[in-house]
């Protein structure tokens, strides 16, 4: 009985090809030294290549993360320069936008510093101290894509310059900043230029480029004063003709309107004297 069972399994044998493939497998995996070495040689560069790729990706990502500025502080007196700040609040670029600015940028060693320390150092710099003491006006403009970082920086900048009269702080948006860079100006100056251009459209970027901030602010002030004065006088000419003349004419206008003559567009002085004349003549007539 048991024989029958034994025979059942006896008919099953390991196929010769199975044995052969196993021997091949063993000699490939274990015995063949050349095969092993081949594999080793092959695996090392493969791992190295993978590692290099990974390192490249990490480096590139890290570079982008660290070296691409996400916010800018534009510093303008006459030297105008711009500090690029990355997302870790470090200064990653210092760029001068005119010769003075370039010089100052070269002399400052604030790259990779925290922007708060850098700003303190910048304000303590001899050149800037000197310019500020000579009645220069400094403008600090914060711009960037990240609103949170922007407002944080602006807050700090404001607290940093607190108590100094001749330093202005404001923030702007990054789009304007890009167009400022296109026209070759730092953002703070460009903002001032835009303000100036609003008042006098004939002013171009080139005119403003080499002016100090103080000069630009002076110009703005000048223009806006002009504008205000010119504005009221011109409107006065149009609508309040009679009143703007000498006090003696006042009566004329009053009497003129009383008689119903000389209204409308006629020139004020003439109609005024005319009506006085009329009044003068008419009066006695009536009395009589």
């Amino acid at each position: 009985m048991n024989e029958k069972w034994k025979n059942a399994f006896n008919e099953i044998h390991a196929e010769p090809e199975l044995k052969q493939s196993t021997m091949d497998y063993l000699s490939d995996r274990v015995y063949s030294r050349s095969g092993r070495e081949k594999k080793k040689i092959f695996t090392v560069p493969r791992f190295a290549a993978a590692a290099v790729c990974l390192a490249a990706v990490l480096l590139f990502g890290g570079y982008r993360l660290y070296f691409i500025p996400t916010a800018f502080i534009s510093v303008d007196i006459n030297p105008s320069l711009e500090l690029g700040i990355n997302r870790f609040d470090r200064i990653v670029s210092v760029e001068g936008y005119n010769d003075d600015g370039q010089e100052l940028a070269d002399s400052l060693n604030i790259r990779f510093m925290n922007y708060q320390d850098a700003l303190e150092q910048l304000l303590a710099d001899d050149t800037i101290e000197e310019l500020l003491s000579k009645d220069g006006v400094m403008s600090l403009t914060v711009a960037g894509d990240n609103d949170t970082q922007n407002s944080e920086i602006l807050e700090h900048v404001e607290s940093c310059v607190d108590g100094r009269q001749n330093i202005h702080c404001h923030s702007g948006d990054s789009e304007e900043m890009h167009s400022a860079h296109e026209s070759g100006m730092s953002f703070g100056k460009y903002e001032a230029f835009l303000k100036l251009q609003e008042l006098d459209p004939s002013i171009t970027a080139d005119d403003v480029k080499d002016l100090t901030m103080h000069e630009i602010f002076d110009l703005i002030e000048e223009y806006s004063e002009d504008h205000n004065n010119g504005g009221t006088s011109s409107s006065g000419i149009g609508s309040q003709n009679g009143q703007s003349n000498s006090p003696g004419d006042n009566t004329c206008t009053r009497t003129g309107s009383g008689t119903g003559s000389g209204s409308g567009t006629g020139s004020g002085t003439n109609s005024g004297t005319d009506s006085t004349g009329h009044e003068g003549h008419h009066g006695p007539h009536h009395d009589r």
Binding site: A14, L18, K19, M23, L26
Partner: peptide
């Protein structure tokens, strides 16, 4: 290895 495969190959199979 060759001996073992010859001896026990069928059993394993």
């Amino acid at each position: 290895a060759r001996r073992a495969i010859g001896l026990y190959g069928d059993t394993v199979r």
